[in-house]
Amino acid sequence: MNRFARMLLAAAVYGCGAAAAPQQLHNARHAYTLASQGPAAQLAPAQLDTARLAVERANMAFGSGADEATVKDMAYVAERQVALAVSAAGLEQANRNLAKYQEEETELRRKLQNATQSELARMKRELEAQKHAVATEHEARLAAERSAAAALKSLDDVREESRGIVITLSGAVLFAAGQHSLLPIAKEKLREVAQALLEQGDSAIMVEGHTDSVGPSARNHELSLLRAQEVRGYLVSQGIPTNSIQATGLGEERPVASNDTAEGRANNRRVEIVVNPKSRAKARPGDPNVGG
């Protein structure tokens, strides 16, 4: 049977209402129905319309009684047209997603860059402030040291030894003979000393009492300790922290001059204040000559 005859026969059968649509046409119609209800309707309307026309052509061919092979081919192509529309919608969605992610990343990096620059500026300001504070503190420390040095130098006898800065106060200025109560003039002098020590900062201080060799040695020891403790107590009353100052009595052990002359004995009767003494570690808490 030739093609023309088959077409006529098919049209006749369809005209009688007995022909059934081929599966391919069902597939194309179903695919189009699904696609028209999906994202393609919004994202690929032009492609979906092309698919609709393809399905309609296949339907018309079937309706006009075209031969089954032709209808199947047209339905096959129509189904691919529907798939093309669905794929075009997928491509459009992917394009939109890609643009959205790239835009979000760009925005995030821009914010990050701004935040980083802001953070850098803040850190720079903090650094400048710290440098300024350090410079100010350094300047203040230098000024305090200069002031303390000047204050110490204004005292009668200040010298630097290996054990520390030693301030020597004459016993004649501090105490009456054989006594351990401070004279009024001594308090005035010790106020100056206390002020100088306070300006010196956190230092370890040792107050040493010394006597000449006149009289019993034990008595000299006791007197030197009492005098040292008296001086210590007064310095504490002027603000020197109790835990940074100690007192010790050395009696006649360490003369600085001969005890054979009046002048020498006068020099030996003294109180020495040793600032930051290196020998402090040797002073044991149990030492009877040492008072805290």
Partner: peptide
Amino acid sequence: RRAQSDADLALAVATEEARRRQAAAAK
């Protein structure tokens, strides 16, 4: 014609798949 419709669809799907991978990488 069937061949052309399948080839066109292959091209479209390949393009779509590549773009989906690109979007996934960006995400």
